Simulated assay, not measured.
Amino acid sequence: MARTIAKDHDHKRTRILKSAARVFAQEGFDRASMSQLARECGISKANIYHYYDSKDAILFDMLNSYLLQLRDQVCGLCLEGLEPADRLRRVVLEILLAYQGVDDEHRVQTSGMTALPEEQQKLLRGYQRDMVVFVSDIIASISPATFKNDAAKLRATTMSVFGMLNWFYMWNAGADANARSDYAALVSDLTLSGVNGL
């Protein structure tokens, strides 16, 4: 007879992933152990193995859950009826708000993804690419003539926006929603002024 799934299965799984993100971010994926993860979660090592058969499986599920949710949150925004500049403002704000409370996951994404097999990395990079394309299309729509025949300039502009957003995450991790909103407006103003001046 098949083993039944506990009622709190999803809650425990989420707790394991959140705790793993903290351990991987602090210790580094290579140095972290299943024993450390169990201690951080407040459960036995055997219990962790009930959910995941390896540290690598935890890393992949954590990054897959994080990046998929981030991609869907950002790319799923309803921007219908908004002018290009307002679409950029809305998306930039959403990204900064989505980063709130996931500093560990973001750090592990940056430092730990290469520990995974290439096929898994490819899937995760696909989520990132979806967001980049989404933002890039919005930037291109702000000044179509500027970017029409210059894909390199569009890519550089798009990655500069992500660079500014990631700078904020690196140096203002504990910032509240108001600080994020203020900085989102600054990034949008800088981008719009810069694009219009190209």
Rank of each mutant, 00 (worst) to 15 (best):
46 A>C: 01
164 M>C: 12
161 V>T: 06
59 L>P: 01
28 G>Q: 09
114 T>K: 08
47 N>I: 00
9 H>R: 11
123 L>N: 00
173 A>T: 03
159 M>W: 11
195 V>E: 04
167 W>F: 14
65 S>Q: 12
173 A>F: 01
185 A>E: 13
84 P>M: 09
99 Y>M: 13
72 D>N: 13
150 D>T: 12
126 G>V: 12
140 A>W: 09
134 F>A: 13
136 S>I: 06
164 M>W: 08
33 S>I: 05
132 V>W: 08
78 C>Q: 11
100 Q>L: 02
162 F>H: 11
191 T>H: 01
122 K>Q: 12
146 T>D: 06
111 S>V: 11
30 D>M: 07
19 S>D: 05
43 I>D: 01
20 A>G: 10
42 G>C: 02
82 L>S: 03
192 L>Q: 05
174 G>T: 07
158 T>Q: 11
150 D>V: 05
117 P>D: 08
51 Y>W: 06
134 F>M: 13
160 S>Q: 13
119 E>K: 08
108 V>Q: 00
135 V>P: 03
92 V>D: 09
100 Q>A: 10
183 Y>H: 10
72 D>Q: 06
47 N>C: 04
189 D>S: 08
89 R>C: 12
108 V>I: 04
12 K>D: 15
63 L>S: 02
17 L>A: 07
186 L>D: 11
81 G>F: 03
13 R>D: 05
25 A>H: 06
10 D>K: 14
173 A>L: 04
82 L>P: 02
131 M>E: 02
115 A>W: 00
67 L>A: 03
152 A>R: 13
64 N>W: 04
178 N>I: 08
182 D>I: 09
124 L>G: 04
190 L>W: 05
27 E>L: 01
162 F>D: 06
79 L>I: 09
96 L>V: 01
147 F>D: 07
192 L>H: 02
61 D>E: 14
31 R>N: 13
26 Q>G: 07
146 T>N: 10
63 L>I: 08
120 Q>M: 15
19 S>F: 02
